[in-house]
C-alpha cells in the first residue's frame, strides 16, 4: 500500500509524533467516567488525505474519543483543532457543518424516511430547511440540484434501485452503505467511521473497503475504528493504537503489527478478543 513517496513514510512511529500536514490536532484530551479515564490522549495528529485507523481492545476509549471529537460528548479537559480552528465546546451539528462527519457503530438509519430522503436530508445550505424558508423561500431548484448529487452518491454505493424504499426496510449492510452515502452528502473533509465493517457480511466487506479507499482518493481524510487487523493492514496509511484511554503506539501498519506493546495491550486483556 505505502509507497516510499508517501508523506508519512519518513515519520517516526512513536505516540504523539507530529506530521507534515495535520488536519486534526488533539492536545491533552481527558474524558473520565467517575474514576475511570476513558480517554486520556496527550497529543495526536491526523494527516490530511490519509486513512488512519484507530485500533485497541474493547473499552480502550476509541468510540468515546470519536464522541468527544465530534461534539457528542464533553471532555473534562483538552483542546482539539480542525484545520487550525478550535472545536472545543462546539455542538455536534456545527462540527458536522465544519466538515467533520461521523457514522455510528450501530447504524442510525432514519427508518421512516426513504433512502433518497435519508441522503437529501444531509445536504448543506438548503434554504428550505429554515422555518420561514420552507414557507416562503425558493428552495425547489436547490432541491433539484441536491437530488442529482444524492443520486450520484446512491449509485456509487449501489443503492440507486431502492431510492423510494423506507430506510427501515434495508438490510444491515445496506444501511451501512446508506450511512456512508449520507455522510458524504454533507461534503466533509474528515470522515469518521465507527466500525463500518461490524456486522457486515464478508461479501460486502470488500466493497466497503474499496469505498473507503475511494474516499481517500477523492482527497478526504478518513479516520476509522476497526477490530479486524487484516482490514487495518490492508487499507490504512497509518495506525493509532489506544489502550485504557491513552494512545500507546502509532505508526505504519506493518510496524504496528510487530510492536510488542501493541500485542501486549491486546493479549493482556481478558476479553479474549485477539485481533
Amino acid at each position: 500500500m505505502n509507497s516510499d513517496a508517501h508523506p508519512l513514510a519518513r515519520i517516526a512511529p512513536e505516540p504523539g509524533v507530529s506530521k507534515p500536514d495535520p488536519i486534526l490536532v488533539l492536545d491533552s484530551v481527558l474524558r473520565a467516567f467517575g474514576g475511570l479515564r476513558a480517554v486520556d490522549v496527550n497529543h495526536l495528529e491526523i494527516q490530511r488525505g490519509t486513512i488512519t485507523s484507530l485500533i485497541g481492545p474493547n473499552g480502550a476509549g476509541k468510540t468515546t474519543l470519536f464522541n468527544v471529537l465530534t461534539g457528542f460528548d464533553r471532555p473534562e479537559a483538552g483542546k482539539w483543532e480542525l484545520n487550525g480552528g478550535p472545536l472545543v465546546g462546539i455542538p455536534s451539528f456545527r462540527v458536522a457543518r465544519k466538515g467533520m462527519v461521523r457514522t455510528f457503530q450501530l447504524t442510525k438509519s432514519l427508518a421512516r424516511l426513504t433512502v433518497l430522503e435519508n441522503v437529501l436530508v444531509a445536504a448543506k445550505d438548503q434554504v428550505g430547511e429554515t422555518f420561514f424558508g420552507a414557507l416562503f423561500g425558493r428552495w425547489r431548484h436547490i432541491e433539484e440540484a441536491n437530488e442529482e448529487r444524492a443520486m450520484r452518491e446512491l449509485k456509487r454505493f449501489g443503492l440507486e434501485h431502492m431510492v423510494d424504499e423506507y430506510a427501515g426496510s434495508l438490510s444491515g449492510g445496506q444501511r451501512k452503505l446508506l450511512e456512508m452515502a449520507r455522510a458524504l452528502m454533507v461534503e466533509p473533509e474528515v470522515v469518521m467511521l465507527d466500525e463500518p465493517m461490524a456486522g457486515v457480511n464478508p461479501a460486502l466487506t470488500q466493497s466497503l473497503l474499496s469505498h473507503i479507499m475511494a474516499l481517500r482518493d477523492d482527497g478526504k481524510t478518513v479516520v476509522f475504528i476497526e477490530h479486524d487487523m487484516d482490514v487495518v493492514q490492508e487499507i490504512s496509511d497509518w495506525v493509532v493504537v489506544m489502550s485504557q484511554g491513552a494512545v500507546i503506539a502509532e505508526g505504519p501498519p506493518a510496524h504496528i503489527a510487530s510492536n510488542p506493546e501493541v500485542i501486549d495491550a491486546y493479549l493482556g486483556r481478558d476479553h479474549g478478543e485477539v485481533p
Binding site: 457528542f72 457514522t103 455510528f104 436530508v121 448543506k124 438548503q126 452528502m185
Partner: peptide
C-alpha cells in the same frame, strides 16, 4: 411546511436525533 426540507429535517430528528446531529442539523 411538512413537504419542505424543513419537514424532512424534523422527521429525521424524530427517527434518530443523533443521526440528525451528525448530519449538521
Amino acid at each position: 411546511l411538512t413537504r419542505s426540507p424543513w419537514g424532512r429535517a424534523i422527521r429525521a430528528i424524530r427517527d434518530d436525533e443523533d443521526a440528525a446531529l451528525s448530519l449538521g442539523k
